[in-house]
């Protein structure tokens, strides 16, 4: 039984990771692998869609912290979208909205990549 799934799709030069299920200390390594693969392929414009993510713990949030700096050094970004209030609350408690761009909608985040060529 797998309680966490990642679906990767790409369009217009932006890589979207759709997360589904439960992101905890058990499943966080799967997300790490997905980010590592994107970095290995020099894909730095990343949007993470949380629409179907039911749960996140700090182990999940730690993955974003581990990769954001490398991504930004390469003129990219990790933008976060479509969080449920429950998931957003965890990001908010840890102060993530100051350091990460969080959007209601995936299209908005993709649009930001298109607007700012520098990213």
């Amino acid at each position: 039984m797998s309680d966490f799934k990642i679906h990767h799709r790409e369009g217009e030069g932006v890589n979207v990771l759709e997360l589904k299920g439960y992101l905890d200390a058990h499943t966080a390594p799967d997300l790490e692998n997905a980010f590592q693969q994107l970095l290995n392929e020099k894909r730095y414009r990343i949007v993470v869609n949380f629409k179907d993510l039911s749960y996140i713990s700090s182990a999940g949030l730690g993955v974003f912290m581990a990769y954001i700096e490398d991504v930004r050094k390469n003129k990219g970004d990790i933008k976060l979208t479509n969080m449920t209030p429950k998931v957003y609350n965890v990001f908010d408690l840890l102060g993530f909205p100051i350091l990460y761009e969080i959007y209601k909608d995936e299209k908005e985040a993709i649009g930001k990549f298109k607007d700012g060529k520098k990213q």
Partner: peptide, 23 residues
């Protein structure tokens, strides 16, 4: 945890304990 510092030092520690106290 100092998020800005963690971000630039690839550190993730302390988040869990901080969250437990908040929650």
């Amino acid at each position: 945890p100092d998020l800005q510092r963690n971000l630039t030092h690839h550190r993730r520690g302390g988040l869990g304990v901080y969250l437990m106290r908040k929650l």
